[in-house]
Write a protein that binds this DNA or RNA. Sequence first.
DNA 1: ACATAAATACCGACCGGTTGGTATTTATAC
DNA 2: GTATAAATACCAACCGGTCGGTATTTATGT
Lengths: 212, 212
Amino acid sequence: MSRPTKHDPERGDARTRLLEAARDIVRTQGFAATSVDQLCRAAGVTKGAFFHHFASKEALGVAAAEYWAETAGTLFSTAPYHDHADPLDRVLGYVDFRREIIAGDIGEFTCLVGTMTQEAYASHPAIREACAAAIFDHAATLEPDIAAAMKARGIVGEWTPTSLAAHTQAVLQGAFILAKAADDPAVAIDSVDHLKRYLTLLFQTPSKGRTT
Amino acid sequence: MSRPTKHDPERGDARTRLLEAARDIVRTQGFAATSVDQLCRAAGVTKGAFFHHFASKEALGVAAAEYWAETAGTLFSTAPYHDHADPLDRVLGYVDFRREIIAGDIGEFTCLVGTMTQEAYASHPAIREACAAAIFDHAATLEPDIAAAMKARGIVGEWTPTSLAAHTQAVLQGAFILAKAADDPAVAIDSVDHLKRYLTLLFQTPSKGRTT
DNA sequence: ACATAAATACCGACCGGTTGGTATTTATAC
DNA sequence: GTATAAATACCAACCGGTCGGTATTTATGT
């Protein structure tokens, strides 16, 4: 055990390590099934440190959602799909980028805030709000490109950029659930392919494509 | 309290009441956050009865998923959308039927097995399997109509009836997550509308609509 | 028809371990 | 020296699960 003290920086401070532990463990076990002790063990800190940084387990959940939104924000804002000249290519490039991420271990590509939403939407309003912000703020980053693609092609469909952006997130979240159920990422990739096909059909339609 | 004995049938036996309590409570709180005591209180039975009918809390989770699959099975097999002559109309009728269900309280139209999958896929393999069966067996009921619609229109796309059926479930599951996050069923309805639009575009396409 | 045996269904007190959270102390940084 | 960060010790409530027992239904032997 040697000397446990001396403020060992190791990898980041205690708060960040707890947030990263939450990201990894909550994604595979869920929020309720993850105990504070387990988080502390994984982060290599004591309970005292936990409750120094977070007022409660719920507060940790909120912070984890915010941390998730932050890291995802930089991941996607620096991704290469923004380089395409055509706005539709940027949207399709986003879907391709999401598709690439889906591989390997399920606990590593699935979405923390989607998982937490399911458990916390009724019992922990603060967590629900933080998750909603993470999801819909991320969706909002797609709206300008969708709107530009609509304008460029003169599309005036009965749907809005907001609802289409939200739909992309719904497909992704649902794909994650199916991948977890099937214990196989392939089914998630199939759904993302269907999403890309939808976007392509939507924007290649010469007429308005009335359906409803 | 009067006389508690004499095998009071009230509303179904203890097992069914526990299953119904699980369906209602787990959908809003999640599996891990729902205690056995809470289930017993809601079902009006004692802990002794619980562990008489179920070997463990996990076994209750498996049984709840199976019960869900059973009740959903009768709900959808007796639904009116099967009456359409055109197989595509049956598929679109299914989507309409799902759309109609999405209304009112979120805890009442969301999916038990989708919720449980998120929490249990890694920690409770038996629950994961039961949820997977519920989801994919339900999806499979759409495959014959999808296949018939493809054949009727001579569509030989790069996708399969199985993957499209699974995709419908992904959209629904994702729509539920977004509804929970936004605390508003409207966003779920929007996604279902996008799904219907996708199906319509897919099957009205004269060419194969190569995209990938 | 009836006594008896054996399942089945259910009850509720109880157990050891874990839970989220607190109080107090100790080390570090500026 | 004082604010911040972290460690230690501790707690009452709650957790899933057990257990000995009782009531009721069903099967069986005569």
